[in-house]
C-alpha cells in the first residue's frame, strides 16, 4: 500500500512537470497577451518593448520556461500583472482556495447524499415512476449548462422570492472571526452561530448549482452499478443463505456497487473545478474559479499558471485518494 502511494506520488510529479510545460506554451500562444492588456490604448512600439523586457517576455520561450521553473522550485510563481497587480500569484491562489473548497465540498456532499440513495432506490424499483422520474431529472441535470442552472436558481430563489442571498459568502456588515477561511466551519469553531448560519444561507444556491452535474452522474452510475450487482451470482448466494434484506443490501449489494461510484466521484472533481468557474462568476463568490475567469480575461500569466497547476495538482491528489479508497474496499487490488 505504501509503495503504491509513493509510486503514485512520483507519477503525479511527472504529470505536473509535463503539464507545466504545456500550460506555459499554451498561454503564450494565445492572441493578445499581458503587454497589450496592460498598455491598452497607450500602446507604442517603445513602451511595448520596454515592458516586455521588464517582464522577461523578450527572451526565447525555452529560456523563459527554464527561468520560470527555477523560480517555481523556490516557491516563487511570479506576481500578478492584472488581477491584483504586484500581489504574489501563489498568495492570490491561497487566499481564494478556502472559498472554493467550501463551495465544492458542499456541492459534493449534496451530490453524494442525494445521488447514492436515489440511485439505489431507482435500481431497486426499476421501471417504476420513481425510477423513470429520477432518470429524466438526471438527464436534464447533465444536459443543462451550470451557468444556466446557477442563473435560474439565483433569479427565482434570491431575486424573485427573496428567500436566500443573491451573491457573496457573507452578509455585508457582519463581523465574523476568521480561523480557517471556511466560513461555516469558522462560525462553528468560534461559536458565532449567526455567522455560521449566514454563511450556510449564502452557500445553498451556489452549491446546489454546482452539485447538479456531479449529482446526476453519481445517481446514474449508482443506479447502473446496483443493477449490475443485483444480477451477480454472489447476491443470489446471499439470498440462498437466507440473510436479511438489510444485510444483503449493505454487505453484499452496496459495498460492491460503490466501487465504480468511488471512481466516478474522483472524476467529478474535474467537473466541480470547471463548474466552480461559472458558479462563482454568477454568485460573485470570491474563489479560485472567479480568479481564474478574471485572470483569463486579462491575460494574467503568473496567476493563470499557478491556478491551472494547482487545479491539476488537486485533481491528481483527489484521484490518488480515490484509488486508495478503492483499494480499501476492493481486496483484489489491495492484495495483489
Amino acid at each position: 500500500m505504501l509503495r503504491f502511494v509513493v509510486r503514485r506520488l512520483l507519477q503525479m510529479v511527472g504529470v505536473l512537470l509535463v503539464l507545466s510545460l504545456l500550460v506555459f506554451v499554451w498561454l503564450r500562444s494565445l492572441p493578445g497577451g499581458p503587454v497589450s492588456a496592460l498598455l491598452g490604448e497607450r500602446q507604442t512600439e517603445a513602451r511595448r518593448e520596454a515592458l516586455e523586457r521588464a517582464l522577461g517576455l523578450d527572451q526565447p520561450l525555452p529560456v523563459q520556461y527554464v527561468r520560470f521553473m527555477q523560480r517555481a522550485f523556490q516557491g516563487d510563481f511570479g506576481v500578478s500583472t492584472q488581477v491584483l497587480p504586484g500581489e504574489d500569484a501563489l498568495d492570490i491562489f491561497l487566499s481564494r482556495l478556502p472559498a472554493t473548497l467550501e463551495l465544492s465540498f458542499f456541492a459534493l456532499v449534496i451530490a453524494i447524499a442525494l445521488g447514492i440513495p436515489l440511485g439505489y432506490l431507482a435500481a431497486r424499483r426499476k421501471g417504476t415512476a420513481l425510477d423513470t422520474t429520477s432518470v429524466i431529472f438526471s438527464l436534464v441535470g447533465v444536459a443543462v449548462p451550470v451557468f444556466f442552472t446557477a442563473f435560474l436558481l439565483k433569479y427565482f430563489f434570491a431575486v424573485e422570492w427573496n428567500l436566500l442571498p443573491v451573491s457573496g459568502r457573507q452578509s455585508i456588515g457582519l463581523d465574523a472571526t476568521r480561523v480557517t477561511g471556511l466560513f461555516v466551519l469558522d462560525g462553528i469553531l468560534t461559536r458565532e452561530w449567526d455567522a455560521a448560519w449566514d454563511a450556510l444561507k449564502h452557500l445553498v444556491l451556489p452549491s446546489l448549482a454546482l452539485a447538479t452535474i456531479p449529482f446526476a452522474v453519481v445517481f446514474r452510475i449508482t443506479r447502473a452499478s446496483v443493477l449490475d450487482v443485483l444480477d451477480e451470482d454472489y447476491v443470489r448466494t446471499a439470498e440462498a443463505k437466507g440473510l436479511t434484506a438489510k444485510v444483503i443490501r449493505g454487505r453484499h449489494v452496496l459495498r460492491n456497487a460503490m466501487l465504480p461510484v468511488v471512481t466516478t466521484v474522483g472524476l467529478q472533481v474535474g467537473a466541480l473545478l470547471s463548474g466552480a468557474v461559472l458558479t462563482e462568476t454568477v454568485f460573485s463568490w470570491r474563489g479560485v474559479g472567479q480568479a481564474l475567469a478574471e485572470g483569463f480575461l486579462q491575460k494574467d500569466y503568473p496567476v493563470l499558471q499557478v491556478l491551472i497547476m494547482a487545479a491539476a495538482a488537486i485533481y491528481v491528489l483527489v484521484n490518488l485518494l480515490v484509488d486508495i479508497t478503492y483499494a480499501l474496499i476492493d481486496p483484489r487490488i489491495r492484495t495483489r
Binding site: 454472489y234 440462498a240 437466507g242 453484499h252 459495498r255
Partner: peptide, 30 residues
C-alpha cells in the same frame, strides 16, 4: 428456511462468492 433447513450451492464458485468479503465472514454470516 433458506440456509437453515434448505441450502443450495451453485455452478460457478468464483462468481458465487462475494469478492470483497473474507471467506470467514461469508461462512459465519449464515
Amino acid at each position: 428456511r433458506r440456509g437453515a433447513d434448505i441450502a443450495m450451492i451453485f455452478q460457478d464458485p468464483l462468481s458465487s462468492l462475494n469478492p470483497v468479503i473474507q471467506i470467514g465472514r461469508q461462512v459465519t454470516e449464515v
